[in-house]
């Protein structure tokens, strides 16, 4: 097998891709190469984790111009002789995956949440039929593009690699960046958190979010939510949504508060190691899909749990 190329605009995700690529390489003997685009710090960080790290610089290769980034990666694939491209399944990565796959005449799988090499094939696991099923698929074309979800692999450990420059002549596609702003709230990274405390529609009082936050803090976790809490009630930012059209998370622990557990939601949390569900309705679906279930009213439980975990209840 020719080499494996990894790229993500996000450093932590690129470190995970490095581990994934090494795992594939172990089983196939391929060489692993990492690229960074207009980002020398990332190239150094990757080299600091033992990667054969390539810097691509180009005025027209702005991240906002997906076609230009894809062109740069196509150039890298050809120059570095790599058949497999691993990308991160964040929005930038997924948008890029299809474009690059088409350029490379490659098959592409995105949102891959488990990856294994069996009899020389890279078997990718991803949700199908709107989350009703889980499909195991493999790319059969010679060139392959795979966009891997966060936390499927651990970040690569420190090591000694080296940095080279890759000179490519890449033209942009005419996308002009006019404005870029962080979302109003501080960005939440629920997909990488080890512990999630998740709020569903069963939470009736907005002010109880303060207690939820306290509970999450006491477990060094993040607050997340089901879709309507963010989109209908607007109590939390949309980057905290778990589910098919939100984020797919694999925390060690998920505490679900007043979440009913419909399939579109469960897709985003069913890979959690341990699930605790607290719900007033003993018949809620979620009670079938949790490790520990507590039938209780959130208005009573939240202050009590906060007190038990932290000794206090926020006013």
């Amino acid at each position: 097998m020719a080499g494996i190329l990894i790229y993500s605009d996000q450093d932590p995700l690129s470190f995970e891709l490095l581990t994934a690529a090494r795992y594939i390489a172990e089983n196939t003997g391929a060489a692993v190469k990492a690229v960074s685009i207009n980002n020398h710090a990332q190239a150094e960080a990757l080299a600091g984790r033992g990667a054969e790290s390539y810097r691509i610089d180009g005025k027209e290769i702005i991240l906002e111009d997906t076609a230009a980034v894809a062109r740069a990666l196509k150039g890298a694939v050809e120059t570095l002789d790599t058949d497999v491209v691993l990308l991160s399944a964040n929005r930038r990565g997924k948008e890029l995956a299809g474009r690059l796959a088409q350029m490379l005449d490659a098959g592409c799988l995105s949102d891959v949440n488990a990856l294994a090499v069996r009899s020389g094939r890279i078997e990718c696991t991803r949700n199908a039929l709107g989350g009703a099923t889980v499909a195991v698929q493999t790319v059969t074309s010679k060139r392959k593009v795979i966009a891997l979800s966060a936390k499927v692999f651990a970040a690569a450990p420190d090591g000694v690699g080296h940095i080279s420059d890759l000179t490519l002549d890449v033209k942009g596609s005419g996308i002009k960046l006019m404005e870029s702003r962080a979302k109003a709230e501080e960005a939440a990274h629920i997909e990488t958190a080890a512990v999630l405390v998740v709020v569903g529609q069963g939470l009736e009082n907005r002010k109880d979010l303060a207690i939820v936050k306290r509970i999450a803090d006491s477990l060094k976790g993040e607050v997340a939510c089901s879709k309507p809490v963010a989109t209908d009630k607007k109590w939390l930012a949309e980057d905290r949504i778990i589910g098919l059209s939100g984020k797919i998370c694999k925390p060690d622990l998920a505490i679900l508060l007043g979440v009913s557990g419909q399939v579109q939601f469960m897709v985003g949390i069913r890979d959690a190691k341990t699930i605790v569900a607290i719900n007033r309705d003993e018949n809620a679906c979620i009670m079938q899909n949790a490790d520990y279930i507590m039938t209780a009213d959130l208005q009573d439980v939240l202050p009590e749990l906060s007190r038990a975990l932290t000794g206090t209840v926020p006013s």
Binding site: A106, G107, C108, L109, E123, A128, L129, A132, T133, V134, A135, V136, Q137, T138, V139, T140, S141, R270, I275, V276, M287, Q288, N289, A290, D291, Y292, I293, M294, T295
Partner: peptide, 20 residues
């Protein structure tokens, strides 16, 4: 085709469902 589907099944849930 460029993709082969090896299996496509509903996920098994094997949660403990222990009441607390």
């Amino acid at each position: 085709r460029r993709i082969e589907t090896i299996s496509n099944l509903a996920p098994e849930t094997a949660r403990k469902r222990e009441p607390v």
